[in-house]
């Protein structure tokens, strides 16, 4: 059953539509990422779920209860911000216990829960430190503990790793996922980083210009993009333009060479202009079969014009 339901959500500002007809159902314990470029409406959607923005139309239901017009402090939704947003005047322990203190929980319960949370984020000894005495990664872990301490129904993360350096980003990413799995908490994660979304999520919602482009598992999003935007935004692609030769077989002719798609081409007719997008990692280069495939024919060494080292792989390009 759906735990969090976002129904036909719209948010219009004076001149722009930030969120247009967003529809999403999230099951209990699911990890869903909202992925898209800056200004695609992902953060606005998250802020509407948190209650910081009110939608122009549409509804949000949490565990069957309509929370669309409920103020943020009555939603029981945990939020982690890009800028950590720890309270500078409070120690780590006070930060983590803030929500419980506001809820007037007994001091002994607060102490126990704070310890539990600090153990969860593997910082049990830092309770007495102030935020400014911590590294960025530690601060964000404390922010996560603070959001989780109140036992929220949903955890919202707004680009939580964007301000951190690459190494910390990867390790904290894994930590967030393992904590989320351990607690089984329903999580909405906003990011513009496709690698983050692909590696963390049960499902990804790709957004562009306020609209949902595609919702699917990381495998579906990466391998079966439904729109050209999703195809170009997620991963790297070689786009080759050609003409349809045989729609039923999925055959397309590009520069006199025929390639065959894995599926037939629906609604296509012979001679239609067609683009083929090929992920670079599925292309193998072979000296022996220079004439065999459309890609190999473009990759004779003498025609390579540029090569960019990208760490674990090398990106090469050629002249046509």
């Amino acid at each position: 059953m759906n735990f969090l339901e976002i129904e036909n959500l719209q948010k219009r500002f004076a001149l722009t539509t930030a969120v247009a007809h967003v529809q999403l159902e999230v099951t209990r314990g699911e990890f869903v990422s909202l992925l898209g470029p800056s200004g695609c409406g992902k953060t606005t959607t998250l802020r509407i779920i948190a209650g910081f923005e009110s939608p122009s139309s549409g509804a949000i239901r949490l565990d069957g209860v309509d929370i669309t017009h409920r103020p943020p402090h009555q939603r029981n939704v945990g939020m982690v911000f890009q800028s950590y947003a720890l309270f500078p005047n409070m120690t780590v322990a006070e930060n983590v216990g803030f929500g419980l203190k506001v809820a007037k929980k007994p001091a002994a319960d607060i102490k126990q829960r704070v310890e539990e949370m600090l153990n969860l984020i593997k910082l049990p000894a830092l309770g007495n430190r102030y935020p400014y005495q911590l590294s960025g990664g530690q601060q964000q872990r404390v922010a996560l503990a603070r959001a989780l301490a109140i036992r929220p129904q949903v955890l919202l993360l707004d680009e939580p790793l964007s301000a951190l350096d690459a190494k910390i980003r990867v390790s904290l990413r894994l930590e967030i996922r393992s904590i989320q799995r351990e607690l089984g908490i329903t999580t909405i994660y906003v990011t513009h980083d496709q690698e983050e979304a692909l590696s963390l999520s049960d499902r990804i919602v790709v957004m562009s210009e306020g609209r949902v482009e595609q919702i699917g598992s990381p495998f579906e999003i990466y391998n079966f993009p439904r729109t050209s935007f999703v195809a170009s935004f997620v991963g790297t692609l070689n786009v080759l333009r050609g003409r349809v030769a045989d729609p039923a077989r999925g055959a397309i002719v590009i520069d006199d060479q025929e390639i065959v798609a894995s599926r037939g081409l629906e609604h296509a007719r012979v001679g239609d202009a067609y683009s083929v997008a090929i992920r670079p990692e599925i292309v193998s280069l072979s000296w022996a079969r220079l004439s065999g495939s459309v890609c190999a024919s473009r990759t004779t060494p003498s025609r390579w014009t540029r090569s960019i080292t990208r760490g674990s792989y090398c990106r090469s390009g050629g002249r046509r």
Binding site: F52, A85, F98, V102, L156
Partner: peptide
């Protein structure tokens, strides 16, 4: 952000 963080924690 501090306001929103406090709000999300029930304040």
């Amino acid at each position: 952000t501090l306001t929103e963080a406090a709000q999300s924690l029930g304040a």
